[in-house]
Amino acid sequence: MTRPEQQDFLHQRKQLIIAAAKVCFSRSGFHGASMADMSAESGLGAGQIYRYFSSKELLVSETVKVIAEEWRTFLEKKLSQQPEVADIIARDSAFWREWSIKDQCLLLEVYSEASRNAAVRDILAQQEQQLISALEPVFQQQNPQISAEQRFNQIHFLLLLIDGVACRTFVDNDLNQPELLRLSTILNQHLLP
Rank of each mutant, 00 (worst) to 15 (best):
A20I: 02
L44A: 03
R121L: 13
R116D: 05
S26N: 02
K22Q: 15
E41S: 04
H31R: 10
Q81N: 12
Q81D: 07
N173C: 08
E84M: 15
A114S: 13
A86C: 09
D87I: 09
R72H: 11
A68K: 05
I17T: 10
S115K: 04
M38R: 04
V165T: 12
D122Y: 04
R27F: 05
C24Y: 07
L10D: 11
I49N: 08
N143L: 11
A166Y: 05
A134H: 03
D37N: 03
E62G: 00
T2W: 09
A40C: 06
A119T: 08
L180Y: 11
G29H: 04
S115R: 01
L107H: 13
A19F: 02
T73Y: 06
A20P: 14
V138H: 13
M38K: 10
Q12M: 12
N176M: 03
L106Q: 03
H31L: 15
H31N: 15
C105W: 07
R97P: 00
L191K: 04
T2D: 13
Q104M: 09
K56Q: 12
A134C: 06
Q145C: 08
E179F: 14
D37G: 01
V85H: 08
K102V: 12
D92S: 11
R51Q: 15
A40D: 12
T73W: 01
N153Y: 15
S112H: 12
D8M: 14
I162M: 01
N176L: 07
Q141P: 00
I162W: 07
A134T: 07
L161T: 11
R182V: 13
I155D: 04
A114Q: 02
Q126R: 14
R13V: 13
S80H: 06
R151L: 08
L192G: 00
C167V: 04
L158N: 00
I101Y: 12
Q129D: 15
W99E: 03
Y52E: 01
Q7V: 05
I88W: 00
V85E: 02
G32Q: 02
N143E: 15
S34M: 07
P137Y: 02
R116I: 05
A21E: 12
V60P: 03
E70A: 12
P137E: 04
S61P: 07
F157E: 03
P83L: 00
E76K: 15
I155A: 06
G43Y: 01
I146S: 01
F25R: 00
M35E: 05
Q81F: 02
Q48V: 11
V60H: 06
Q12V: 03
P83H: 00
A125P: 09
D103C: 06
P178Q: 00
L107T: 11
K65Y: 07
F53N: 10
I186K: 15
M1Y: 10
S115L: 15
Q81Y: 04
S42T: 12
T185Q: 10
L183S: 15
R51L: 05
I101L: 14
E113S: 07
S112T: 12
D122A: 15
Y111I: 08
K22A: 11
Q15K: 04
V138A: 05
